[in-house]
Amino acid sequence: MIASLLILGTLGLIFGALLTLAHQRLKIEINPLVEKVTNLLPGANCGTCGYGKCNLLAEAIVKGKVGLDLCPATEPEVIEKIAQLLGKEAKIKERKVARLLCAGGKKNAKESFHYFGIKDCQAAMLVAGGNLLCKYGCLGFGSCIDACPFEAIEINENFLPVIDSEKCKGCGKCVDACPKGLIKLFPASQKFFVACGSEDKGATTARNCSVGCIGCQKCIKVCEQDAITIENSLAKIDPEKCNNCGKCAEACPKGIIKSN
């Protein structure tokens, strides 16, 4: 009885002492600034900054290794707050948003065959490059939705992902997730974009999909800023020249110059 009490007591004491010792010896000095900056960062741990986790980026920011604007998901106001905390000048980068360069979907893009496999873009891509006649078309299985750390993407009834430009932080995860390379980052100030990625000839595009850019040049004619060019039968808007007048969107016969 006494022996058991003694042994258990001694063991407990030894372990307690060890823990106390460890607590003192292995104390970690945490810079309180790091914690404050971590709380200000988005906390999605998306890894776009290259640090893997938000608290690691906060540490780098506090140490001055990187600029304040490395994280694309941080709002300008928040960057200013961080700058105030650290007593630094805030440099604010232009916000970017992801946009889907396809308007096809179930209704408009023609299928080349019925696909019954795994409901995943990468998997569908392996079968003859997807089940659409248009090889640039969105397959609509939503790999981008799984990749988005901010829940900014939803799939609509036409099986096309819709990116909420308010929620989108421009981290670019969906850009990497799309096997067709259909999602691109645009500066948020450029309102209008061509929702088509088809570089096929106009006639081919028209055959494959009812909402593909056929390179008809109507948008070029109405643009007063000369901001639109056509490369490989696909209209492109130059964000430097575009003044967001929206005339091209009205002129487009396919209605695929969209704004959000």
Binding site: I7, L8, G12, F15, L18, L19, L26, I28
Partner: peptide, 22 residues
């Protein structure tokens, strides 16, 4: 007494390892 003492060991060890790696 083995159950009690082993749990003591494991709980302490986890704490120590956590401290060390941190």
């Amino acid at each position: 007494l083995r159950t009690v003492s082993f749990i003591l060991v494991i709980a302490t060890l986890v704490q120590l390892v956590e401290r060390f790696t941190k």
